[in-house]
């Protein structure tokens, strides 16, 4: 046992060292930095400043990321549901082929595309005008919080769908057939039989998406220059323009709390599920 254990530690040491050096150390450094002033003394001044200057931005961030997460849930369930329950094999194949594309587009490129698509004279408005659905004068720009939400949803839906559709296809198919057999429509099967069985996978996908969206800088910078802005933009501003690492770290701490809260909700549900299903027979 002794030598084997020693070898195991040697084997994982390089990976462990990399994780400590590149992840745990900077994270810890930034968390501690949130509670220190420039001189290194302990203080809550960074949080006070963050609250005074950026509470609206925090709310703005939560709303954008929250709404995006909800929309991603709706779209990924819809796409996964069609891939699992859809009646047309051709449409299923086409959807299966097409839905993953945004996964391969970087956020910055997605943001750039959305600028040309959602702007006042962007492709979306031009198409609507061309189709006679509205006139040029009433065209408005979507390059604000709505643009960010659209980009986030477009970019992250395939990721969650990939997980959700995989879980749906992995279900015991007869649980779906049993509901259909008893008279359930496809929509009811999706909402009452399929989604409850894959809810954990959905939750993991949404939380990972939530965390990703909380940390994207390029999309809010490119799509919405004005105030309020997302926390990532504020952090970049504090560091690059003012050199104020303390407030940036405090905002980082707030982001971390928000994502931690989402993870806590998920873990609590997972533990409850396990307790309910794992009781002795």
């Amino acid at each position: 046992m002794g030598p084997t254990r020693g070898i195991s530690i040697v084997l994982i040491a390089p990976a462990l060292a990399m994780a400590l050096a590149l992840f745990v150390y900077p994270l810890g450094y930034s968390l501690i930095g949130a509670f220190q002033d420039r001189g290194g003394a302990w203080t809550l001044a960074n949080f006070v400043r963050a609250w005074e200057l950026y509470r609206l931005d925090t709310l703005y961030t939560v709303v954008i990321v929250g709404v995006s997460t909800l929309l991603i849930a709706v779209f990924s369930i819809a796409i996964g549901g069609y891939l699992t329950l859809g009646s047309s094999p051709l449409a299923r194949k086409l959807l299966d082929w097409i839905y993953r594309w945004p996964l391969f587009v970087p956020f910055i490129v997605a943001a750039l595309c959305m600028r040309t698509f959602l702007g006042r004279n962007g492709m979306m408005n031009n198409s609507f005008v061309f189709l006679g659905l509205m006139d040029q004068e009433s065209a408005q720009s979507f390059l604000d919080w709505r643009g960010i939400v659209v980009t986030f949803v477009w970019k992250q839906t395939p990721f969650v769908t990939l997980m959700v559709a995989g879980a749906m296809l992995g279900l015991d198919r007869s649980t779906i057939d049993a509901a259909r057999n008893l008279g359930a429509s496809r929509l009811r099967v999706l909402l009452e039989i399929v989604v409850p069985q894959i809810r954990r996978t959905l939750a993991v996908g949404l939380i990972l998406s939530f965390v990703t969206m909380m940390s994207v800088l390029s999309v809010p910078i490119m799509l919405s220059g004005q105030s309020p802005s997302m926390l990532t933009v504020n952090m970049a501003w504090r560091i690059n323009s003012i050199g104020d690492y303390g407030t940036a770290n405090a905002l980082g701490f707030v982001s971390y709390l928000l994502t931690g809260l989402a993870a806590w909700f998920y873990l609590r549900e997972a533990v409850r599920d396990k307790a309910a299903q794992g009781a002795p027979r």
Binding site: S174, A178, N181, P196, Q197, Q277
Partner: peptide, 19 residues
């Protein structure tokens, strides 16, 4: 369609809904 047939089926795997 299967949901309009007024039949009931018992499956080999039982197909009970675990939730």
């Amino acid at each position: 369609p299967p949901d309009k047939r007024e039949m009931a089926m018992v499956f080999q795997s039982y197909a009970l809904w675990p939730h």
